[in-house]
Design a binder for these strands. Structure first.
Lengths: 340, 340
DNA sequence: AAATGACATGACACCGGTGTCACAATGAAG
DNA sequence: CTTCATTGTGACACCGGTGTCATGTCATTT
């Protein structure tokens, strides 16, 4: 059985448990002869240190919490994938914690998580990464945190994001370059900073290309498929009808496609549609959606790696707390030249 | 700061730490006066016991692992939701562990997980719940586990599933009742037991309704959208073309819909399509997919609750280790009467 | 030859809880 | 008025690691 403890290893190797501990942690001042004896004992006894005991001694849990409230399962899964690979690399464990941004007891909820698990740090994903309330609470509790895809980089916390605004600008310019002038826009959930950023990329692209901004072409969604349907119905019944719709995410874009089908509008011949996020649905519907792929896994991985590194290198000031990764335009079948 | 330990509480209340521990664990033989004093101290000092120390003393981690290898993000998320609610209820933590069924070092991978975290139990989701190799390994290591949606109930482990075979039978009968006789079937991934069960439900429905089984109408997929596309292309180019397709999950059904669109085949007028799982995509595409909704959250919740209960009630033999929950037929727009 | 310092090692307390056991106080039974 | 259970309580060791400090062994310096 895997009953080997540090004591049994010490006895087996004929040294003190402290020496075993030294070998374990690669501390200096152990003779190579002793080191080898102990390492042989590790192998012979199939020993693994008990992380719980180690945690108690260090007053650490080696647990990272990941907080999210996001309707997109694929986004969540991608965040988890990135977070897990960072954790595994550094021998940490990941605890997932879905919770509601607007829940009445958000801070109590997070507090309960912290106390129940004694976690060492937290990864905040949208929309929590922009919730001042949460950030200040964590600071006051002295819980280190890292932010994934925040809207602002104004404090000195670890933040990794991608260039939402620039990407929205590019996809809008793509539509413009295809001849579209009346480009409708569906906004995302107001609690998410990406909503503002993407809208602003859209506006910038119009401005740069001297296209008049028409407020009636903008509708407010909330990133859900359902909200996209509502917005699409409004937008597609406008007269004159815009020739393209840029939705702030792929679920809403898919909803636009559905409504277009119901109205027997051909996509992309009569209507171009663009989304954002490169969710699986973007390639699971026909025509496939032109969209933006963000490096979600990599953002999370990077943020978490920085966070964990910060635990170990206590005094070295790392100035590179903030990073912006590139998003990528993906052109599929849902966008085409405007029909004259 | 939340520095309150059992020692500080003991001093504050003027009792020994053992007595505090007794109050914490609701042990008998504490006078009500003492109990109140200690409970007041808990409040005054805002004390929470340290789960790590408790874990060390008990040689427990209060961690449950959840192992999965599933291409469907929504399925994973639903499993997680169910697992989390069971864990929170019993003050356990959930560790997610995606890993590859066919990876060369599956058992090593699981072994590393166990040793790294010292977890108290494992939830196995498809396809792991049917992998004899894994089950036997866990038994040999004495790690308690619960199975979600296993194909067989032949051992005495905790298992919660839904009636896949019956559900597939019903959805096939629905198609038959709509007048379809040539109903194609796309199988799932051979490693998943649901693949066999769903196929067998399909066969039973044909048989019961005296419809000839035509092997050329069956194609092998692997639950992925991509495999569904391949199968759809084969099936839809058959001559004569079947009037309906039943795919073993919604992703493959969505792919059939895409291929049908590309061939300008109208769904459901010229072709009925049914899926399985009620994944988000089933209602995110147009027409919406007729499908089967399984109580995934509830299955996982139930399995995990039973598992955790088993830790506490050590000798009481609970005979209700196995349970089957009802799946539900959901009729949407993708199925209709056959055209004559 | 004695003093110095670098290195190697172990004894011991400690992290924050829990289990075991001893013991005092109380009440009931003989 | 003893005797004996029962109840309430605390001292102490222990879970499996880590930190601190003392000590022993050398090689180097003076």
């Amino acid at each position: 059985m895997s009953k080997a403890t540090i004591n049994s290893v010490a006895k087996y190797a004929g040294v003190s448990k402290k020496t075993v501990s030294r070998v374990l942690n690669e501390e200096p001042n152990v003779s190579s002869a002793t080191r080898e004896k102990v390492q042989q004992a590790f192998k012979d006894l199939d020993y693994r240190p008990n992380p719980i005991a180690r945690g108690l001694a260090h007053n650490r849990s080696f647990i990272i919490g990941c907080i999210y409230d996001n309707p997109s399962k694929s986004y969540i899964t991608r965040v988890q994938t990135g977070a897990l690979s960072a954790c595994h690399e550094k021998n940490y464990n990941l605890l997932i914690h879905p919770c509601e941004l607007r829940g009445q007891a958000l801070l109590d909820n997070i507090d309960a998580l912290i106390r129940r698990t004694r976690l060492d740090g937290i990864v905040l994903t949208p929309p929590f990464c922009d919730k001042t309330e949460v950030l200040e609470y964590l600071k006051s509790k002295n819980i280190p945190y890292a932010r994934v895809a925040p809207g602002t980089l104004d404090d000195d916390s670890i933040s990794v994001r991608s260039n939402d605004e620039q990407a929205a600008f590019e996809i809008t310019e793509l539509l413009i370059s295809l001849g579209h002038k009346d480009i409708a826009f569906i906004k995302g959930h107001p609690d998410h900073s990406s909503t503002t950023l993407r809208f602003s990329g859209y506006l910038n692209a119009l401005k740069k290309n001297n296209i008049e901004f028409k407020p009636e072409l903008v509708d407010e969604g909330n990133f859900s498929y359902h909200s996209g349907e509502d917005s699409a119905r409004k937008i597609l019944s406008l007269s004159p009808r815009p020739s393209a719709v840029f939705a702030s995410n792929d679920y809403m874009a898919a909803a636009v496609l559905k409504v277009a089908s119901q109205l027997s509008l051909k996509v992309p011949e009569e209507m171009s549609i663009a989304g954002f996020d490169n969710a699986p649905i973007a390639r699971h519907i026909w025509p496939g959606l032109t969209t933006i792929a963000q490096p979600v896994e990599q953002m999370t991985y990077t943020a978490l790696s920085k966070l964990i590194e910060q635990f170990t290198e206590q005094d070295d000031e790392l100035p590179l707390h903030q990073e912006t990764l590139e998003a990528q335009l993906i052109i599929r079948e849902s966008t085409d030249k405007v029909k004259n």
